[in-house]
Computed example of a mutant assay.
Amino acid sequence: MNKEVVRERPDLEEQRKLGYMLDDNLESLRREGVYEKTRELRYPYYSVDPNTGFGWITALVYVNGVEAAQIGVMELHREFTRYEYELIHFLCKLVSLELQKDDFYKQNQSLMHSVFLSDLLEERVRDARTAKIRSRQLNWQLSDTMQLLTIFDKNYGVFDRKAQLIGEQVQKLLAGSRWVIYESAVVFLLPLPLRLLERPRPEDAIAEYLAANRLYAALSEPFGDVLALKKYYLQCRSAFELGARLHPRRQLYGYADYALYHIGALVSKSGRLADFCHPAAPALAEYDKQHASELFPTLEAYLEHVDDPTLVAARLNIHKNTLFYRINKIKELFGLELRSGSERARILLSMAFMKLE
Results as ranks from 00 to 15, higher is better:
Arg9Trp: 07
Arg9Leu: 09
Leu12Ser: 06
Leu12Val: 09
Gln15Ser: 13
Arg16Asp: 15
Asp23Glu: 15
Asp23Ala: 08
Asp24Phe: 02
Asn25Lys: 08
Leu26Asp: 10
Leu26Arg: 11
Glu27Tyr: 09
Ser28Leu: 11
Leu29Tyr: 06
Leu29Cys: 03
Arg30Ile: 08
Arg31Thr: 11
Arg31Lys: 14
Glu32Ile: 00
Gly33Gln: 04
Gly33Arg: 07
Val34Ile: 12
Val34Trp: 01
Tyr35Leu: 13
Tyr35Pro: 01
Lys37Gly: 09
Arg39Leu: 12
Glu40Tyr: 00
Leu41Gly: 06
Leu41Thr: 03
Arg42Ala: 14
Tyr43Pro: 06
Pro44Glu: 07
Tyr46Thr: 06
Ser47Ala: 13
Pro50Ile: 11
Thr52Lys: 04
Thr52Asp: 09
Gly53Cys: 08
Phe54Lys: 13
Gly55Arg: 06
Gly55Cys: 06
Trp56Cys: 02
Ile57Met: 08
Thr58Met: 09
Val61Gly: 04
Val61Lys: 05
Tyr62Arg: 01
Val63Asn: 04
Val63Thr: 08
Asn64Pro: 02
Ala68Val: 06
Ala68Trp: 00
Ala69Val: 03
Ala69Asp: 05
Ala69Met: 13
Ile71Lys: 06
Gly72Pro: 00
Val73Gly: 03
Val73Lys: 10
Val73Pro: 00
Val73Arg: 06
Glu75Lys: 03
Leu76Arg: 15
His77Cys: 02
His77Gln: 15
Arg78Tyr: 07
Arg78His: 14
Arg78Gln: 14
Thr81Tyr: 01
Arg82Ala: 12
Tyr83Val: 11
Tyr85Phe: 14
Tyr85Arg: 08
Leu87Asn: 08
Leu87Gly: 05
Phe90Pro: 00
Phe90Trp: 06
Leu91Val: 10
Lys93Gln: 11
Leu94Pro: 00
Val95Gln: 09
Val95Asp: 04
Ser96His: 02
Leu97Gly: 12
Glu98Leu: 10
Asp103Glu: 14
Asp103Met: 02
Phe104Met: 08
Tyr105Gln: 01
Tyr105Leu: 06
Tyr105Ser: 04
Tyr105Lys: 04
Lys106Gly: 12
Lys106His: 01
Gln107Trp: 07
Gln107Pro: 04
Met112Lys: 14
Met112Ala: 15
Ser114Phe: 02
Ser114Ile: 01
Val115Cys: 09
Val115Gly: 05
Phe116Trp: 12
Leu117Thr: 11
Leu117Lys: 03
Ser118Lys: 13
Leu121Glu: 10
Leu121Met: 13
Leu121Lys: 11
Val125Leu: 07
Arg126Ile: 14
Arg126Ser: 14
Asp127Trp: 01
Ala128Val: 12
Ala128Ser: 15
Ala128His: 12
Ala128Gly: 05
Thr130Asp: 14
Ala131Thr: 10
Lys132Glu: 15
Ile133Glu: 15
Ser135Asp: 11
Arg136Thr: 11
Arg136Pro: 03
Leu138Val: 10
Leu138Ile: 12
Asn139Glu: 06
Asn139His: 14
Asn139Gly: 11
Trp140Tyr: 15
Gln141His: 14
Ser143Gly: 15
Gln147Asn: 10
Gln147Pro: 09
Leu149Ser: 11
Thr150Val: 15
Thr150Phe: 00
Thr150Lys: 01
Thr150Ile: 02
